[in-house]
Simulated assay, not measured.
Amino acid sequence: MKNVLIIGGTSGLGWALANELANDDQIQNVYTVGRTLHTEVENPKINFFAHNLLMDNFNFSERFNDIDALFITIGAGRVAKFDNLSEKEINMEININYKAVATVLKQFYPRIQKSNDFKVAVISSIAGMINSPLFSVYGASKAAIMALIQSLNIELEKDGSNNRILDVRPGHIAGTRFANNKSIDTKPAQKVAVEIITAVQKKDQILIPGYEETYKAVIERNREDSHEFGINSYDYKIAGNRLTEKPQIKIGYMSGTFDLFHIGHLNMLKKAKQYCDYLVVGVHKDASHKNKTVFIPLEERMEIVRSVRYVDEVIVSLPEDSDVREIIPYNYLFVGSDYKGTERFQRYEEQFSKLDDVEIVYFPYTKSTSSTQLRSAISQDNK
């Protein structure tokens, strides 16, 4: 391996893999892709690229055409009853755990087939092998990935390819999350990272970290009586207070008039979607707050915004963006940097500083077509 791509390599096990690989003298570059980077990059071999995998308009194979190893470590899920999961969250888990993985594998598949030595590892989960109540959608989506990898490895063999996809099926790994931009103990994750690198070098097809000491007995109990295993698993999670009521999905909110829709609007919406799983856009009824008139009716402006693929939901905005949180508990409030320092957003900053689950993201102003320019052009034509 010389050039490695890690999809989801910005935290947890992916970050442990990135650092382990970057310390190998044989490795020249480690490219990591994720929505945000949670810690400082100290090794110059590690190169970070921001991308939200829920945005399906990117070809990784074209962008990273020099790699000879691919690690896909993405995953999303939480311990919760099925009726506590929203449709948004279900779609997000399926899209991240299965669709995004299958899409990336498809993009690189010609190279996996034809290259003499192309290393591939995908992180699934032990949850996909056993009865996983309170982890239903996560377990089901991981089981789907296991089935996909198993089938692809047979196809590769029948096609005469020497390459195989390593299916890594871990259970819980300590040190695989980051909090407050500071990593916790990553030694357990680092140990698993070494196991994965060794297994992928050997072209193994399945790796279950901690199999002999922990998961062999778990798998056997499930095989002997899956129903009883499921009942015990359910009770164990409840007794251990492992249920989480808070959705894992990150919601973003942006408001605007979106009159005379142009590339500047599109770029703002695209930037916003980079940060969140679900983007809600509030459209102003008019532009009276700017002492301007609008050219396009509200319903038409809402329909235009709704048709943009980066947007998941459109609502009529409220006078105060902060009040929208009472209706939609967003985690990010997006706005142009020209609003930073205004009385309104200073008030929002003070209000949100008391909360730990919301952040204002200011997008820097960039030169592009603007509504002001279009208004001016229209006014000139009307003279």
Rank of each mutant, 00 (worst) to 15 (best):
L5A: 02
I6L: 08
G8T: 07
G9K: 07
S11W: 07
L13Q: 05
L21T: 01
A22Y: 04
N23Q: 14
N29Y: 13
V30D: 09
T32P: 10
G34N: 02
R35M: 06
T39R: 15
V41S: 04
F49P: 11
N52M: 01
L54A: 03
M55K: 13
F58A: 08
I67E: 01
A69E: 09
A76D: 06
V79L: 05
A80D: 02
L85H: 03
E87P: 03
E89V: 08
I90P: 03
N97L: 01
Y98Q: 04
P110H: 00
Q113K: 13
Q113S: 04
F118Y: 05
V122Y: 06
S124P: 01
A127F: 06
M129Y: 15
P133Y: 02
L134D: 04
S136E: 09
V137M: 02
M146F: 13
L148I: 03
L148R: 06
N153V: 03
E155K: 13
E157C: 13
G160F: 00
R164E: 10
H172A: 15
G175F: 03
G175V: 00
F178E: 14
N180C: 07
N181T: 02
Q190E: 15
A193W: 01
A193K: 03
V194P: 11
V194I: 15
V194A: 15
A199F: 09
V200R: 08
K202Q: 08
Q205D: 13
L207E: 06
P209W: 07
G210V: 03
G210D: 13
E212L: 14
V218Y: 05
I219C: 10
E220S: 04
R221P: 10
R223F: 07
H227S: 14
F229L: 02
I231M: 14
Y234N: 10
I238E: 08
N241K: 13
N241V: 03
Q248K: 14
K250A: 11
M254W: 09
M254N: 09
S255K: 12
T257F: 00
F258T: 06
F261E: 03
H262A: 04
H265F: 09
H265I: 05
M268R: 01
K271D: 10
K271G: 04
Q274C: 12
Y275K: 08
L279H: 11
V280P: 01
V280L: 11
H284E: 15
N291S: 00
N291L: 07
F295Y: 11
I296S: 02
E299K: 09
E300C: 12
E300K: 15
V305D: 08
S307W: 07
V308A: 10
V311W: 09
E313H: 12
V314C: 03
S317N: 01
L318Y: 07
L318T: 14
V324H: 05
R325A: 02
Y330H: 11
Y332Q: 07
V335G: 00
G336M: 10
Y339Q: 14
R344K: 15
Q346C: 13
Y348V: 04
Y348Q: 02
Y348C: 02
Q351Y: 11
K354L: 12
L355E: 13
V358H: 00
E359A: 12
Y362V: 02
T369K: 00
S371F: 05
A377C: 01
A377R: 11
I378C: 07
Q380R: 11
K383Q: 06
